[in-house]
Measured scan of single mutants.
Amino acid sequence: RVIAMPSVRKYAREKGVDIRLVQGTGKNGRVLKEDIDAWLA
């Protein structure tokens, strides 16, 4: 299970990103909004 705040999950869904593919850089591997942006870049 991916650790991410609900707002980040929603952001990823809106961008069409599968959050399971994104490498989290936050505490304990948490996926941050910046990680979604970096994955899209």
Rank of each mutant, 00 (worst) to 15 (best):
R1W: 03
R1T: 15
V2R: 04
V2Q: 07
V2K: 06
I3Q: 09
A4H: 03
A4M: 05
A4N: 04
A4Q: 04
M5L: 10
M5F: 12
M5Y: 15
M5S: 04
M5P: 08
P6F: 05
P6A: 15
P6N: 05
P6I: 05
P6G: 10
P6D: 06
S7L: 11
S7F: 05
S7K: 13
S7R: 08
S7Y: 12
V8K: 01
V8S: 03
V8G: 01
V8F: 02
R9M: 04
R9Q: 04
R9V: 05
R9N: 05
K10S: 07
K10W: 08
K10N: 12
K10M: 07
Y11P: 01
A12F: 01
A12G: 03
A12N: 00
A12D: 00
A12Y: 01
A12K: 00
R13V: 08
R13W: 14
R13S: 07
E14H: 08
E14T: 09
E14V: 14
E14F: 11
E14D: 12
E14P: 00
E14W: 14
K15R: 08
K15E: 11
K15W: 09
K15I: 08
K15D: 00
G16L: 08
G16V: 05
G16S: 08
G16C: 07
G16R: 09
G16M: 14
G16F: 10
V17W: 00
V17P: 00
V17I: 08
V17Y: 01
V17R: 00
D18R: 04
D18G: 03
D18T: 06
D18F: 06
I19E: 03
I19N: 01
R20Y: 09
R20D: 13
R20P: 03
R20A: 10
L21S: 14
L21K: 09
L21Q: 09
L21I: 11
L21Y: 12
L21A: 11
L21W: 10
L21F: 14
V22W: 02
V22L: 06
V22R: 01
V22A: 04
Q23D: 09
Q23M: 11
Q23E: 11
G24H: 05
G24M: 03
G24E: 02
T25S: 12
T25W: 04
G26F: 03
G26I: 03
G26N: 02
G26M: 02
G26Y: 02
G26H: 04
G26V: 03
K27W: 08
K27Q: 14
K27L: 13
K27I: 14
K27Y: 14
K27S: 09
K27N: 12
N28V: 06
N28E: 15
N28S: 15
N28L: 13
N28M: 12
G29F: 09
G29S: 09
G29Y: 10
G29I: 02
R30P: 02
R30N: 12
R30K: 10
R30T: 10
V31Q: 04
V31N: 01
V31Y: 02
V31D: 00
V31M: 03
L32Q: 07
L32W: 05
L32V: 08
L32M: 11
K33E: 09
K33M: 10
K33F: 15
K33A: 14
K33H: 07
E34W: 13
E34V: 13
D35Y: 00
D35N: 08
D35W: 00
D35K: 00
D35A: 01
D35F: 00
I36Q: 00
I36A: 00
I36E: 00
D37W: 05
D37Q: 11
D37N: 13
D37K: 06
A38M: 12
A38E: 15
A38W: 13
A38Y: 12
A38H: 15
W39T: 09
W39D: 03
W39R: 15
W39Q: 10
W39A: 04
L40S: 06
L40P: 05
L40F: 08
L40G: 09
A41M: 15
A41V: 15
